[in-house]
Computed example of a mutant assay.
Amino acid sequence: MIKKKSRIFIAGHNGLVGSSVLGLLKKKNYSNLIIENKRNLDLRNYHNVDKFFKKKKIEFLIICAARVGGIMANSKYPTEFLLENLQIQNNLLTCANKYNLKRTIFLGSSCIYPKYSKTPIKENNLLNGKLEKTNEAYALAKIAGIKLSQFIYSQYGKDIICLMPTNIYGTNDNFQEKTGHVIPGLITKFLKAKRNRKDVEVLGTGKPLREFLHVDDLSNAIYVSLKISKKKLKKIFDSELPLLNVGTGQNISIKNLANLISKIINFKGKILFNKQFPDGTYKKNLDSRLMRKLGWSPKIKLKEGLEKVISKRYQKVKRANR
């Protein structure tokens, strides 16, 4: 179905996931990769997005664009997280339907599932309970995107696959302490504390268990989803919208994660846990058996992935401080 010269639009190509997908498809020799910077194309503006789709004659769409952040950012700016993500995905999915794209990949998040879901979480747990408050706005936006995809899929017969990745990390992440996710935030804290010979404060008790996936493994899942035949998808999903979890199946506590990052960085100070901050959901790992049925499996172990990310981040920080 997809060919090396197919016109593929990667929405959000500068972000953590989008940049990894772009790099992978280039390595695979796809020659018509369509990208555009935010300053030239505001994905929140439907008129501009519609003109862009019409002009570029897009055939395949990968929706990596989103407003994302950690617990602190989600808690502080829920209105922006809800509205901006709704605007972005509504515009892209509307145009995917209007211009009859051959396949659309919609990326969600594991936070779409109820706070007290039985783990490992299966795809049919969606909408079976209350969401975690600390990222409710982002989760609601992504749930709306899944439901819109489902309606377009069932009403108009358009080809859409929804992937729900677990917590993603990688080299092109947001390394801001206050707005980044847990891994890049911790890496920044430990590097700064080592440089300044200070202790590190970790927000929360450190007890929650999390599952982490290297962004390059997610990119491979997206690539598999782009190439998989409709016939194989139909065998697994019959008439339902293809909704697939993407995770490793492995958990680690925030405390053990902090200790692992500390060890890789060779940090000698103390790690202090501030219990005044919320932990979020206690345990959240995904059942990714459906994705594995498509022939995908993660390749990068957490320690290996962290070593790569920390090495590149350390070199970047070192250059910046010269």
Rank of each mutant, 00 (worst) to 15 (best):
I236V: 15
R195T: 09
Y169I: 05
H214R: 09
D173E: 15
Y169F: 15
R39A: 04
R103V: 01
K270S: 04
C162W: 03
Y77H: 12
I254S: 07
I88M: 03
N48K: 15
D42S: 07
L127M: 08
A137V: 09
N45P: 06
S149R: 13
I265F: 06
N40L: 06
L82R: 13
M1E: 09
R210V: 06
H214Q: 10
E201V: 14
I62M: 04
P78A: 01
G295N: 10
I265V: 15
T166D: 03
L290Y: 14
G70P: 04
E211I: 05
Y113H: 02
S19L: 15
I62N: 05
E84I: 04
L82W: 08
R197V: 08
P165S: 12
E136P: 02
F9L: 15
I62T: 00
S6I: 00
R313V: 01
K102W: 11
G249F: 05
L209V: 05
D173H: 14
L209S: 10
P120M: 08
L243G: 04
K115R: 14
I222M: 13
I62H: 00
K178R: 11
E201W: 06
L203K: 06
L272W: 00
F190S: 02
G23W: 11
K3V: 03
I88T: 03
Y99I: 06
L241Y: 06
D217T: 00
N74T: 08
L16H: 09
L25H: 13
L244W: 02
G280N: 09
V317K: 13
K142W: 14
R7D: 05
T134M: 04
G23Y: 12
L93A: 02
R7W: 07
K231W: 10
F212T: 00
L140V: 14
